[in-house]
């Protein structure tokens, strides 16, 4: 048993402030355990999301000491001892209450993406090596930490013209599926605003699933968009041979 100090945002989008708490904790506890203990003993109406408590559902995202992380996978032992731990809601989305934010925008973006569209004459056989790279993208647990940290959303608030790393990963998984036939490049270039990303790799750094978002998803998609829309030789080639 030891005692820790916590500073947690309490309030709504209209008004709120960080409140300080002191709490007895045990070895092995994660930040989410501390929140649960606070709810049980001091503050039953403290709002936060959680489900699996095993890093698999991506519900308990928050900013712990300024870093976007899953509360269920952040051990108290790994944070500086004797210092107050600050827990804030994700900054990129509107606050609902305390640590719960309104992430509904993400669901709206997802709806706009052309779904999986298999080729009509597809053979449903492929090798493991053909899908290794998209299985990496499909590990995404939609914690939206990458969206939270992306400066295009966080600082520049480009929510209306930019899809964010989460959905670049999703589109990469679809575009690179061995038998998908849909074309999402025009959407990526315009509505999804892929060009806004300037490859700072912040998203990759915070991904709890260790998906190489920038290197494996965003950069290959950028290359495809460039090839299609900006490469003069490709454009000439397509004009000459009347290919799309």
């Amino acid at each position: 048993m030891r005692s820790i100090r916590l500073k947690i945002f309490r309030g709504t989008s209209n008004s709120g402030e960080f409140k300080e708490y002191t709490l007895e904790v045990e070895e092995g506890m994660v930040v989410l355990d501390a929140i649960h203990r606070l709810q049980a003993t001091q503050s039953p109406d403290l709002a936060c999301r959680w489900n699996c408590k095993a890093g698999k559902c991506g519900s308990c995202s928050a900013e712990i000491n300024g870093k976007p992380r899953l509360m269920c996978m952040t051990r108290l032992n790994d944070l500086p001892v004797n210092k107050t731990i600050t827990i804030a809601p994700l900054q990129t989305f509107p606050i609902m209450k305390d640590l719960a934010t309104d992430v509904s925008w993400n669901y709206q973006v997802n709806k706009k993406i052309t779904p999986f569209t298999p080729k009509s004459n597809a053979e449903w056989h492929w090798e493991q090596k053909d899908i290794d790279r998209i299985q990496e993208f499909r590990k995404c647990i939609e914690c939206f930490l990458c969206q939270d940290v992306c400066h295009v959303l966080r600082v520049h608030q480009k929510h209306s013209v930019y899809a964010g790393p989460r959905f670049f990963v999703r589109m990469a998984a679809l575009e690179m599926h061995p038998i998908d036939s849909a074309d999402r490049l025009p959407f990526l270039k315009t509505d999804a605003g892929l060009g806004y990303c300037n490859i700072t790799k912040c998203c990759t750094q915070v991904c709890p699933e260790s998906i190489a978002i920038t290197d494996n998803a965003i950069i290959p998609l950028k290359e495809r968009v460039v090839d299609r829309f900006y490469d003069p030789i490709f454009i000439l080639f397509r004009k000459l041979f009347k290919k799309k």
């Binding site: 709504t12 709810q39 503050s43 039953p44 109406d45 403290l46 709002a47 936060c48 609902m96 209450k97 305390d98 719960a100």
Partner: peptide
Amino acid sequence: STEGNRMFNPGWHT
């Protein structure tokens, strides 16, 4: 008994 109000209140949900 539960503190606070009906807005996102885990104590109430429980």
